[in-house]
Nucleic acid binder design. Sequence first.
DNA 1: CTGAAAGCGCTTACAG
DNA 2: CTGAAAGCGCTTACAG
Lengths: 332, 332
Amino acid sequence: MATIKDVARAAGVSTATVSRVLNNHGSVTTEARDRVNEAVRTLGYHPNSAARTLRSHEVSTLGLVIGDVLNPFFAELARAVEDEAREHGYYVIIGNADENPQCQDEYLDILLDRRVAGLLMCPTAEVSPRVGEAVRNGHSLVFLDRTIPELDIPTVRSENAQAVHELVRHLCSVGHHRIAIISGPDSLVTGQERLAAFREALRDNGCELPAEYLRIGDFQVESGVQAMRSLMELPAPPTAVFAADNLMALGALRSIRDQGLRISTDVGIASFDDLPWFELVDPPITAVQQRTEEIGRVAVRELIASLHGEQARSWKFPCRFVPRQSCGERHP
Amino acid sequence: MATIKDVARAAGVSTATVSRVLNNHGSVTTEARDRVNEAVRTLGYHPNSAARTLRSHEVSTLGLVIGDVLNPFFAELARAVEDEAREHGYYVIIGNADENPQCQDEYLDILLDRRVAGLLMCPTAEVSPRVGEAVRNGHSLVFLDRTIPELDIPTVRSENAQAVHELVRHLCSVGHHRIAIISGPDSLVTGQERLAAFREALRDNGCELPAEYLRIGDFQVESGVQAMRSLMELPAPPTAVFAADNLMALGALRSIRDQGLRISTDVGIASFDDLPWFELVDPPITAVQQRTEEIGRVAVRELIASLHGEQARSWKFPCRFVPRQSCGERHP
DNA sequence: CTGAAAGCGCTTACAG
DNA sequence: CTGAAAGCGCTTACAG
């Protein structure tokens, strides 16, 4: 590949001049500028950004580490992050941690080593020393969707409790008293908060959460399938089930169908996360909607603020409860 | 941040020795090695990979440029690429081109500048000079899902025609004669091929494709909504509609529901791409399944082969036609 | 306006 | 086994 030296030679100038026209820095005569541009074109020259970064410390790339691209929630988040970043002149490179702390660390290293300007991440369960270290080393970091309480890092995410309360109130009002939950992992704040809110809301409405109505999943499809099956095999199965994310909801729906049961008639189902196809299922799925796009966009803005030396702030966005017909609601 | 010099000083050795223990290159006494490792730990040292790459030309990262993360097909592809890459010791960083040739070029530059070992991409419509240039400059590149015929670049993708033929035969066999298509863009091979196969299959089965039954979409949801609406407003609307990707199928389904129509009874619908929730819709959606995971994995293997100086090959994977009940099929 | 030169943080022959 | 030194491809004061 052509280097800056080749260009300089071809244009009959020094490498300093080439650098100047490339970066629009300092003044260069029009004539010299033209010769350089010409040389760049004919040589098909592209600056080596490793060298450039090494020297100038300037970068216009943001790193994003997400839990799992296959989860539509994260895909939407990634999209929002990308859109907002681009509007500010940044690109984003994505690493997929696969909900695996070790993998997350590796991406953290890779992205940081590549000298991204700043980092956005959805932290997985365990606290990795690498994360704290990155911050101490002066890297700008903001969490999104999830947080790690011990770490005091600016976080943009959903306020989980209020919509869960609304959901439970709704379920009770349409006549459910035996309500089960397919919860997320204990180790994730999103898992904890949704479960805590669910439990509390149940109590507020004069219900209990018997141990056998609590199933801990891992936010993946298969755990939803398993949980739903075992729930329906109980001597006294629940009349409604709340799945704490869209993937487990998908699993639960699949399990209902496989058991030859009917949604709503045989067992009600509600989901945290709302997906476009929820409206197309018969009956349409009652769900909690997160403001995913806003979470992604605001996180980027906070990160950029922190890049500019301002103090990044944390945000919590309320969710919207969207009752439909999957829980025995009367049809309109 | 600590540099290799700091480590060298702290360990009382030269930077050369530090580099040796870091890369497990050459021999170092156990004692020196221990001192270096100790220094690395206490200083929280992480090598600057820009500098390392600049010097050694070695990289273990693959770049992936996809059309749109929000499209579940691409998300699945990205996941497969990542899994396979990791099994070979590579990481992958993803760029989201948003189906925009200019954006694609920018990611191409960014990823190449960051010195990825090789590049995987789903090329958007227009041929970008940047792509040919990258290849000429000796970069390893493989296309997946789509290709650009003029470019002669190894491509791993689906064989689109055969399953479409099967689909059409199926539709005719269950009594459809007025079949419309919501096609992808003309400029994408996937769009072209699916349409051409559809047209040909119709002819084989003694049907026509009247101009008003051909709607060109852009592989996005909204175009599916529009197309479906206008199709059903025709004086003689089709009895079945084939959507050339999952996003347009989603749009079409939404449009059917919004118009108060019933799937299958009022109009049949089939989709290219099969999604987990297709089984959950009532009635379940008839679809063409791509071997997405295999496409992603094989593309990575070909890229790695080409990195090792072997000639990468092109692959075409057959699709599987999955008849369900959305096209007036008799219920089992 | 422009060039010579130093230096970013590493790796790697080359001596010893 | 180890260090001094060159060099990867850039950018940026410093002179002129």
